[in-house]
Amino acid sequence: MAKRQEILLTGAGGQGLILASIVLAAAAVNDNKNVVQTQSYGPEARGGASMSSVIIDVDTIEYPKVTKPTVLLCMNQASYNKYLSKVEPGCVIITDSTFVSGPYKEELQIKSLPITRIAKEILKREVVANMLALGVINAATGLVNRDIFRESVYEMAPKGSGELNQKAFDLGYRLYEEGPEQLIRAAAQTSQQ
């Protein structure tokens, strides 16, 4: 990780994106990096759209706001429409295809994965889609050491849900590396047995 990384997590209120940004920031702190986390507090944060950002750098972080996102996560169509115009080629864009249907621009590096659907079908819990998304992001970017990140996910999860959240995080890695078809097929086989 060379330069300042600016990560934008966007979606609908209730998808757990603010918590995800705090977990990502805590993981980066545990990985000895400098971090600033901010979130939108406006009327849009009360129902409707949710936006939070994390800046990670080895250097000290002065300006705390995102100017050029290097990673963008879109968990619903409205946020995809809104934030896609703010990124430049080179930014890693991850969309949740459960809710986002494009249009996808060829000049941009967009990875579309069924994040929420996988959480629902394989873990039977839609609420951990946020940690699954973090797994996907970290698999794609290597922002934070994977083991440290896993530990932080456990520590920051609500009491009693640490393991489930870790499972979701690991599943995010697999979703990124193996693709959704493979995961769904494997899950179907285990349920048949």
Binding site: I22, A25, Q37, T38, P64
Partner: peptide, 9 residues
Amino acid sequence: EVIGHMREK
């Protein structure tokens, strides 16, 4: 507000 609401290491 920026400092009050910001999380930082």
